[in-house]
Design a protein around this nucleic acid. Structure first.
Lengths: 203, 203, 203, 203
DNA sequence: CATGAATGAGGATTCATTCAT
DNA sequence: GATGAATGAATCCTCATTCAT
């Protein structure tokens, strides 16, 4: 649950070490998946002995959990960025190409599916993922609600529930799409993403 | 590449046996994931010895591949159903609640994410998945194209590329959504799915 | 708890295999102790792969438990032998040299202390050992009681409690003695064992 | 063989440190056994870093050896106490309940079996234990011999060999008994211990 | 065809020990 | 003196795969 697990004399160094491990894990997980990546592989990538990793993480599962937690936090940042926009609704419609491009970048989010799949059968991971999803939805909902009020659009619960879910659904679908069709026509997809989003956000 | 079939005295019986294994695998994969399911688990579920499975499949990976191949075909059936509709475009908009409901049912399709995740790192699986995606896109595209022509809507390549990708994207996102938020507001989501689809299909 | 843990087609063969493992374990445990003996060591001694042992035992602890259980049952046999004697009391006094000799034989009971020590800190083993001790005490008590009644000696609970415990104590002390003084004067010890036993049994 | 002392700037302080470690080890060994106790556990209990312990002991085995050596000396003290008695023979018979009680107290001597078991397989420990046993026997023998002479009882070698071994045997059996039957009837056992001891000491 | 006994490589994890600071 | 970060060998255990029957 808590992020900092073990006591260390020099917490600064410990954090660096933890980050080393998580970065190494990211690479290995991307290459081999959570279960395909061995501790030996991770330790080599982290430049530290396998045994030593256990001074920073209780188990391989703890590494996976920490990795998921860390990655899942990235969404919050996206929300904060969105919040800064003058008109978040119009920004989203206009920035669709950029968002699509970011989502399709195989180096940024190759692990979204791994996380989702793992969460479907690992309760520990599911908890982390669900918590993060709750937070993201609340943030997103608040931003959308404020923006829609300014536009004089309805903001009742049913409306907001559907809007938030469908919008996120559209974006999360991107991670699946790029795996199924790595050569997809990005501009064309972006254009239709904009169309869908515009229809939803402004109705 | 294509499933390597082994020589058997009675090919009929062999097919039955293969199906037994694949059905068992489906159950085990759903419970434990591709890597979490052991051959022992599968063989018990298949009612046949672990060793004997190797008379029908070269390896566990071959079972996974065959399983993916078989399940990925499922989409074709959906396409054929859609083709039968008088007005496919309107049907899709109207049937959104049903489609959403089916996608969200954890008993129907719990393995979509597992397959996608595996395909992201296993080239053998990737090939199967990509091939299936190509076929599904072509079918879907043809259906949409014919329908849009009847509605007098544009059907140029760029338009069709974007429409097909975005529509599939929306549906594939559902598999992710339900894992991240198992308690999502289904009617609300369906309504916004309809809105998005209507905007895309008729523009 | 139950002795037979796993299902096998040929229970006969399985029993042989289990015995192979337990015999090998006996040798290794004697050489290196419960914790010093590795599964690799045991598997080599058993003439079977380490992995295969797990088809017959759930864990190393299960091997230890089975080993303890098996060895602890030996006491029952001693009781049955004793029961056959015409005058158990006099037999025990007279047979002291033989019993001492058996207890001191480093090949028969080198592991009694290992078992006792393990039971002092492993609850699973403690349970097995305590159960066996209860059974042995009850058997021994019944035999002594019947014999003492025939001799017209008191058999009240306090008397029987003390007699049983003190007699067993004397014998279990032998296992410790031989470790602390492997060259002890056996006939001399036997004689004093007889003296002590005679005093207790007939008073 | 004899404890290898390391050179230290302040030998006084070094001794204090060694004692810290041995006291900590006593607690840990009692809790987890010699092999179950880790250096980390011991170092935490000793309030000193794991690495630092190696300035005072060559290895974990050296700690075990030192611990055994230290604890094995305890018996000498008992002998000295016994020597002070006016009539050691009668004292032993009369004090049986107290001795039994002390032996059965799990806080006083929980490690006797651990030491005996270790000595059965670790030659280094065996040597320490054998030496201590020799010394204890000699002391005990001398005390008994003097007392028996005063009572006009025989004191030939064979007699003394048997008496000494059987008496120690009876007491060492207590450590085993209490592990096998923690709820044993202490007063009843004491009474029969007295009976046995009286018979041996005065015959 | 069918079994499941058997293998052995590879997995995560632990822990005594070393060493730079 | 004293620390604890770091190592790496060893441990228990799992599991895909083979093969005699």
């Amino acid at each position: 649950m808590s992020t900092t697990e073990k006591r260390h004399i020099d917490p600064e160094r410990a954090l660096v070490r933890r980050k080393q491990v998580l970065d190494a894990a990211a690479a290995c997980f991307g290459r081999s998946g959570f279960h395909g990546a061995s501790m030996a592989e991770i330790s080599k990538a982290a430049g530290m002995s396998a045994g030593h990793i256990y001074n920073y993480f209780d188990s391989k599962d703890a590494i996976i959990a920490a990795f998921v937690e860390q990655n899942v936090e990235r969404v919050s940042q996206l929300m904060r960025d969105l919040e800064q926009q003058a008109d978040p609704l119009q920004s989203m419609v206009d920035d669709a190409p950029r968002h699509v491009n970011e989502h399709l970048d195989p180096n940024t989010w190759p692990l979204a599916l791994e996380i989702s799949a793992e969460s479907a059968r690992n309760p520990k991971i599911a908890e982390v993922v669900h918590d993060a999803d709750v937070r993201a939805r609340l943030q997103f909902r608040a931003i959308l609600k404020a923006a829609r009020e300014r536009h004089g659009l309805p903001t009742d619960d049913f409306t907001m529930d559907g809007l938030v879910e469908a919008m996120i659904c559209l974006f999360q679908g991107l991670d699946v799409r790029v795996v199924h069709n790595p050569k997809l026509n990005e501009p064309a997809l972006s254009r239709y993403m904009s169309i869908a989003m515009k229809a939803m956000l402004f109705s």
